[in-house]
């Protein structure tokens, strides 16, 4: 089954800083719950794994990522990837185009259009969960990217004391990125979030977040 995602996220940092997050493939991957880059093959090729919980089943994919195009001037990146689950019963592929656009001196927007294709058991058994699960994964992913951006912002403020956002009011305890980036997947919280969205959906409310 094919899942097409078109999402954007406002980041409270300059476009240059935002882009520095995006071009760091390992860092980006670490923001995705359950995902990690296991090997950098060369400048544009990576190997990695991602573990996803779909209902009662947990599926671990391992695969390859290739940065097909990267343009630091236009701040665009095109990544493709493919993999299969370790049991051989499912396959997945990803085609992602992301861009960082400047929306202000210390603000930018990260937009991504991606097509995820899933085949095999995951598609057969998990089709009805895919949409919700993907939404939840992205929500966590965006939270993590945002936390990284906040960290970047906090760390860069002392150097540039003329920060336009009023650095004196900066949060007392900036959230450590390491804590925000959930590399370990919290299945229970995740399941709860899905259930919550499902119930909200039943009553016709727009999904949280």
């Amino acid at each position: 089954m094919k899942v097409e995602l078109d999402k954007s996220l406002a980041l409270p940092v300059s476009a240059t800083a935002g882009w520095s997050l995006v071009e760091n493939i390992e860092g980006m991957a670490a923001c995705m719950p359950g995902a990690k880059i296991t090997e950098r093959v060369d400048a544009t090729h990576y190997k990695g794994t991602i573990t996803v919980k779909l209902g009662p089943a947990t599926v671990s994919f391992k695969g390859e990522l290739e940065v097909v195009a990267i343009d630091p001037i236009a701040r665009t990146i095109h990544v493709i990837g493919k993999g299969s689950d370790t049991g051989g019963g499912s396959g997945a592929s990803l085609d992602l185009n992301a861009v960082v656009k400047e929306t202000g001196p210390d603000a930018c927007e990260l937009s991504g259009v991606s097509v995820v294709n899933v085949t095999g058991k995951v598609a057969a058994f998990g089709a009805r969960l895919m949409g919700t699960v993907t939404d939840q994964l992205l929500k966590i992913f965006f939270d993590n990217v945002l936390a990284k951006a906040e960290e970047l912002k906090t760390n860069t403020v002392p150097a540039g004391s003329t920060g336009s956002t009023g650095s004196t009011d900066a949060p007392a305890a900036p959230k450590p990125a390491a804590q925000a980036v959930e590399t370990k997947f919290n299945g229970l919280a995740f399941a709860w979030a899905i259930l919550k969205d499902f119930i909200a959906g039943l009553f016709g409310r727009s999904k949280a977040g």
Binding site: M1, K2, V118, T119, G120, A123, A124, F125, A127
Partner: peptide
């Protein structure tokens, strides 16, 4: 089937 050829009715669910 979906367009990728995944069979979607393959369980008693």
């Amino acid at each position: 089937y979906d367009e990728q050829g995944n069979v979607l009715g393959g369980t008693l669910m």
